[in-house]
Simulated scan of single mutants.
Amino acid sequence: MASAPPDLQGVRIRLRQPISDDIETRWSIGQHKDIVEGYGGTFDPDAPFSRSGAEQAIRFIRDQPCAWVIDAGRFIGHVRFHGHVPQDRRANLAIGIDDPAFLGRGYGTEAIRLALGHVFGSGLHRVSLRVLATNTRAIACYRKCGFIDEGREREAALIDGRWYDDVVMGLLAREFYAGHDNPNRLS
């Protein structure tokens, strides 16, 4: 996971490295209440999403050791692995679909499966994630990709002065391959 990951082609999407056009697309998408809150952030309707914010978001993806833009004809979000522990052959997954027009339509599932196929094929043994317990759409997507609930961290996230639980989920390489004979399939 040390060098930039290769482009990965799926049925409806391609995972690729960021390009300069992604900045304008990310800026035009803006920020949306449901998405910001799903990430565990606080949405401020009076704080417009700036071009500088878009540049920072794309730079963040580019600077990650194992990250891709999710391209469905244009930028719609990103998927990345972080917290890689080479000794244990494990890492953490994070994904964000920034364009609300692409939520709930299987794009996240396809992106996760493509990315998991790559990292498990490269020798990772385990992938973990944490997600707000209130983010039921994301939890359903992760379960569809084979992730198993491993626990709950009570009151782990403070958002707008309220405490929320995080769900911890994990997936082992053997489980991924046993449950997904074709990592690119959509159902």
Results as ranks from 00 to 15, higher is better:
78 H>G: 10
77 G>P: 05
166 D>E: 11
85 V>Y: 13
29 I>M: 01
90 R>Y: 01
30 G>F: 05
56 Q>S: 14
179 G>D: 01
162 R>S: 15
113 R>W: 02
136 T>E: 12
130 R>M: 10
132 L>S: 06
126 R>F: 00
156 A>W: 01
89 R>E: 11
101 A>G: 07
25 T>Y: 01
2 A>Y: 14
156 A>M: 02
86 P>K: 06
158 L>F: 14
49 F>L: 06
116 L>N: 01
98 D>Y: 08
9 Q>D: 04
151 G>I: 07
141 C>F: 03
16 R>E: 06
23 I>S: 04
131 V>S: 08
168 V>D: 00
103 L>C: 12
44 D>C: 06
160 D>G: 14
52 S>Y: 11
163 W>C: 13
146 G>P: 06
167 V>R: 06
120 F>Y: 09
154 R>I: 03
136 T>P: 04
7 D>Q: 09
187 S>Q: 13
1 M>W: 12
51 R>C: 05
143 R>D: 08
55 E>V: 10
47 A>S: 13
146 G>S: 05
1 M>R: 11
147 F>L: 06
85 V>G: 03
85 V>L: 12
176 F>C: 09
120 F>M: 06
31 Q>L: 03
15 L>M: 06
112 I>D: 03
54 A>R: 02
159 I>W: 02
2 A>W: 14
172 L>N: 09
182 N>Y: 08
84 H>G: 05
103 L>N: 10
60 F>L: 10
186 L>C: 11
97 I>L: 10
87 Q>K: 14
105 R>Q: 13
2 A>N: 15
31 Q>E: 11
42 T>E: 14
5 P>S: 04
124 L>D: 00
143 R>Y: 05
186 L>V: 10
148 I>D: 09
147 F>M: 05
178 A>H: 10
138 A>N: 02
124 L>Q: 03
179 G>Q: 12
123 G>S: 02
20 S>M: 09
77 G>T: 04
5 P>V: 08
118 H>K: 05
187 S>R: 15
125 H>D: 02
115 A>L: 07
21 D>T: 12
21 D>E: 14
65 P>H: 15
86 P>D: 13
31 Q>V: 13
63 D>G: 15
157 A>C: 14
141 C>H: 01
61 I>E: 04
86 P>C: 07
27 W>S: 02
164 Y>V: 00
40 G>C: 11
76 I>C: 05
52 S>H: 13
15 L>P: 02
114 L>R: 05
34 D>F: 05
180 H>E: 09
155 E>S: 15
65 P>D: 12
105 R>G: 10
23 I>L: 06
175 E>M: 02
106 G>K: 06
166 D>C: 10
144 K>C: 08
156 A>T: 04
153 E>T: 07
10 G>A: 04
32 H>A: 00
158 L>S: 13
42 T>L: 11
63 D>N: 15
76 I>V: 13
166 D>R: 11
